[in-house]
Design a protein around this nucleic acid. Structure first.
Lengths: 114, 114
DNA sequence: CTACCTACCTAGCGGGACTAGGTATTATGC
DNA sequence: GCATAATACCTAGTCCCGCTAGGTAGGTAG
């Protein structure tokens, strides 16, 4: 069942903005953080995450800054922008509306069947 | 905001199975029915619906039967199959899990900020 | 130097929603 | 007769995006 993959579409940006909106994070950390917070449900592949981060940065919703740890070790931290914060509010609202519409249809129909 | 389009992916099949699972319906009817039940939220384009119906039929989740009204007028009614019913149960469960995972992340964070 | 972890990146594939166009019947209006 | 619009179906091609599969590079353990 590859339905989960499809369900992701349109939600990933909201998830990323949500996390980064709480505190600056780097890519690899986002993957483990998402898996932890969702109790194992979200397991982002790198090929999913990094392009998504680049897209968000291109759109000006997040910004990045390299941070060096020890010699040669480095991480790219992302933080949310003003525009990103506004977008996050909007995306949460979009999600709520979608949720409401879905639940109007998807209900378990305990008494409908002929 | 084209987010709505992406949110659809992975949900359309569930919506269609839900409707057809309640009673046989034809394509054009599904479009108006979905718009009505969702209070105007879902407005499927024909280029979205018909390919989706054909896909569901190819997968054996629904079956179709032509019905003639007056001379020349005809509708293709879809009804759900046994396999479709099982799939619907599964999809509803998938949706619930996705919903639970999303709500663990997407919450409005009233008290999180540093 | 092999293996695995961290940490980043990307070309290309696949699939699904949509665009834009088509067919055909019925009905209204000029 | 011709145009427009509603009902009712269909589909080739486009776009977007998650993912596959591969790469770079440093650090650590055997």
């Amino acid at each position: 069942m590859a339905q989960r993959r499809e369900l992701m579409k349109g939600s990933i940006d909201s998830l990323l903005l949500c996390l980064i909106g709480q505190r600056p994070m780097y890519g690899y950390q986002i993957i483990t953080e998402l898996e932890g917070r969702s109790q194992g449900y979200f397991r982002f592949k790198e090929g999913t995450l990094y392009p998504a981060l680049h897209r968000l940065e291109r759109m000006g919703l997040i910004e990045s800054a390299w941070q060096t740890l020890s010699r040669g070790r480095h991480r790219k931290y992302y933080h949310i922008t003003e525009k990103g914060l506004r977008s996050l509010v909007e995306k949460r609202s979009e999600w709520q509306q979608f949720l409401a519409a879905m639940s109007l249809i998807i209900q378990p129909t305990t008494d409908e069947m002929g």
